[in-house]
Each structure stands twice: as C-alpha cells, then as structure tokens.
Design a protein around this nucleic acid. Structure first.
Lengths: 224, 224
DNA sequence: TAAAAAACTTAAATTAACCTTAAATGGTTT
DNA sequence: AAACCATTTAAGGTTAATTTAAGTTTTTTA
C-alpha cells in the first residue's frame, strides 16, 4: 500500500516515513503544498497524510484541489492540537479523518488501516488481501482459503499492482512502467503473458477473484 | 493442521469452526477458559485462536498459563475493537498475533497460514533450534539428532541469521550487511558460496531442514 | 458477416540468477 | 618458515524466470 506524506517539518516527515515503512507501507514524502498536490494528482496513492500548515500552498487548499479533480483517495489531516475550526473545515472539504498533533503512532496506524480497509484492501503484516485472495509479498505467495501458490518476482509485482489499484483499471502502459521501468522496450505482449500466468495461478488456487480485461484500456481485479 | 478455537459466544465459535473446516483445517472448540486451557495443554494444536473475554478464566490468563507450561504453539488473540491495552498486554504475554473483532475472514486465514507455516524458534542457553536442527553459537556447531558438524564463524553467523528470520526471506543485501558490514565490497557470490557450504553441512547431518532459494529475492529456511 | 484489431496462450529461445568447485589469499599457530 | 584453516576469488555449469514469437481466439466495426 502506497502512502503520500505531505509535511514540511523535516523531523516529523522523517519520523512518519520511517514508522510507515517499518509497517510495510511504501511511502513518498513532499515537503510543501505545491509538490504535494502534484504528487497527489498522480492518483497512485491509497492514503494521503496531509499537514494543514504548509509552505507555498496550505493543506486545506491542497485537499480542495484533490477533490475538485475528482480523486477519492482517503486523506488524513494533521491539525494543531485542539484546533476545532481547522478540523471542521477539513472534514467539510472532504477529509476522511483527522489527527491532532502530537499523536500516538498506534493511533495513526489504526486509522490508516481503517481507511485502507474502507477501500477494500487489507494490509496485515506482509499480506495484502482483496476479496478471497491474499498476497504475501515477503514470501511471494498467493493464496485463497488454504490453497497457496508461489509467484515469481514479476508475477508478484503485477499482482501487487492490481490489488493496490483495485477497482481502477490498470493500463498496460502503467503496468510496463511499474514492472519494467520508465523507458524499457517492453511491449504489451509482455503484460498479456504475465496476466495469463496470473490467471492460471488464480484458477489453480480456485479463487473467485478474476482479472478482467477492459478492452482498449487495461485490466481490473474483480471478485466473483 | 489442527486448530483450537477458545470462544464462548456460540454464534461466533460456530462461524469460526465452519470457516476453518471449509478451509481444510481440523478444528476443536472450547467454550470457556478452563476447558480451553485443558485442551491447549494437550499440545496437539498447530495454532490456537483465543478470545480475551471468556467465562471462568480470561484469555490472558489462559495464554500466560500456556507459556508457563513451556508450549510455543502460536496463539492469535481476538480482542474487542480498538482495545490497544489488551493488544499490548496480549503480545507481552506471548501472543503471536491479534485480531480486532469484527474481523475479515480472509485476514484471519492469512494470519493462520502465516503462523502455521512458521515453526517456532526455540532459544535455550547458547542454542537456537528450528525444525530438526539446533545451532550452538558458543561452540559453533550445528546438529540434527545425534549428528553434529562444526561451523566456521561466517557459516555460523549466516545460519543464525537465517534461523532468526524464520519464515521471512533474507535478501543477499541483508545477509551481506549482517556478515560483512554496512559498506563492504562483498558481493552476492560471497553469499552464494556460504549458502552452498551450509547446504553441504545440512546434508551431512542429514537434516530435513533446507535453505530454499527465492529467486530474485533471497533465501529462506524451511523444514521438510 | 467479413475483416481487422486486440488480446490470449503456448512452447521454444534466451538470459540472468544462482550453484559448485577448486584454487588463491592471507592471517594465525606451531 | 611451514602448516593450517577460514575466507575470498574466479570460472564454468545448471536452472529457472523472462522474453520472443507465432498461431489462436475473441471482440469490435464497417
């Protein structure tokens, strides 16, 4: 699961990204509102942790802009302690949760888990779950019920990407960029081959979750 | 795999045992702490799912008693939602994982798989045990049953690292950092050579524990 | 409904990762 | 200094993941 932290205090940003990485999240950090918004608009994040007080562009404006662009990514606002006005304003602008500084780390983790769950993806330890499947990125195994199958590196990366994008459609270009990197010569057939491999393995573990093709656009995970 | 569920709410106990049986586990249910502890002490279970709130004897006391008797069976605690105090107390008393009610079934299954896969590491004095092998870091010997072989320093350090990481995959980078230090020029072939040495010695003592290669990722100890 | 486009599936070819062994190195002990 | 032993280096062999490529199927559109 990928999290964007928009926070200007270097010390806090560092602590946050360390905490989150230790809990198996992928973390990016932006140090001001402008670059934060830029990153947020890429729509690759599952949760955004957003400070209200920021240089260049304040947190509320960033949030407003994110929603104006139609993104529904869950946003947790960091507010100064006891600032109820900010909290209300934030929730009005489409924040999903808020946390008063200083906060307890366990509380932050719990809220992130809750928001991630809301989007249907469950992160527990090294495992990502969606529908009836669970992907362990550490052991590189995919399982459903008690059936398990091991994945190769590329298969695992692709499955992880599909789970994280969930109901969004993942285009072949995005998948190529994720699995083979920015300017590789990999072509669409590469993706097709790996999609085929994964489908075979999903069948093998008798999962009800399938990779659907959206012709001309890409692929999407769906249960049932 | 045999699982003991200690849960007093009839409804939940029924649902759990049904879910687990459907996933090919053998399940026994105890409806209170006392009978649960009795069953647990028979030491025939691979995983125990233990509710905290129980009549006669609460979950934490059951857990404490299980550990006091020296059993290392993995225990998953079921806690009320958001009760961080219980969670911490449980982990302190030797629980291996916890799950807040209400929980997602796939999440429970993922955790059971993770715990079932892992065989506990037993530390006693200078000896570390895993599966059928035992590593004495003082005398630098590796043994299985009555067979014994001596290890060199690097071999011993590598074996220790693999045992301590248990079912997680240890990457070559991590191993290099551990054995040769942060910015050494050691390269992946060093690791390969020592893995090869250890495999030869594991074979020599006729152990059923093997070092598996997870291609592109690293190595992992596995029994059988 | 025929033709074209997109996607699917396989098996074979390729390549990168990994394994193994033996010899070289370098420090320590006798 | 010779013998010993852990460690490192190096090179050739093996295996498995990835890529290629070609034939097949499905979907779209004219």
């Amino acid at each position: 699961m990928r999290i964007l932290v928009i926070e200007d205090e270097k010390h806090l940003a560092e602590a946050l990204s360390h905490l989150l990485r230790k809990n198996n999240y992928t973390v990016d950090v932006s140090n001001d509102g402008e670059s934060g918004l830029d990153n947020a608009l890429s729509d690759i994040y599952d949760v955004i942790v957003l400070d209200i007080m920021l240089p260049k562009l304040d947190g509320i404006s960033v949030l407003k802009e994110i929603r104006r662009e139609g993104l529904d990514v869950p946003v947790i606002l960091l507010t100064a302690k006891g600032d109820i006005a900010d909290k209300v304003r934030g929730l009005d602008c489409g924040a999903d949760d808020y946390l008063a500084k200083p906060f307890n780390t366990e509380e932050l983790l719990a809220r992130i888990r809750a928001l991630g769950r809301r989007r249907g993806v469950i992160v527990s330890g090294d495992a990502l779950s969606f529908g009836d499947i669970s992907l362990n990125t550490q052991s590189m195994t995919l399982s459903s019920g008690s059936a398990e199958v091991s994945l190769t590196l590329k298969e695992c990366e692709l499955m992880e990407y599909l789970i994280l994008r969930k109901d969004a459609v993942a285009s072949k270009e995005q998948i190529i960029e994720k699995l083979w990197g920015f300017d590789s010569e990999a072509e669409s057939n590469h993706v097709e081959v790996y999609i085929s491999f994964l489908r075979k393995k999903l069948k093998f573990i008798k999962s009800r979750t399938a990779i659907n093709t959206v012709r001309g656009v890409g692929y999407r995970l769906e249960t049932q």
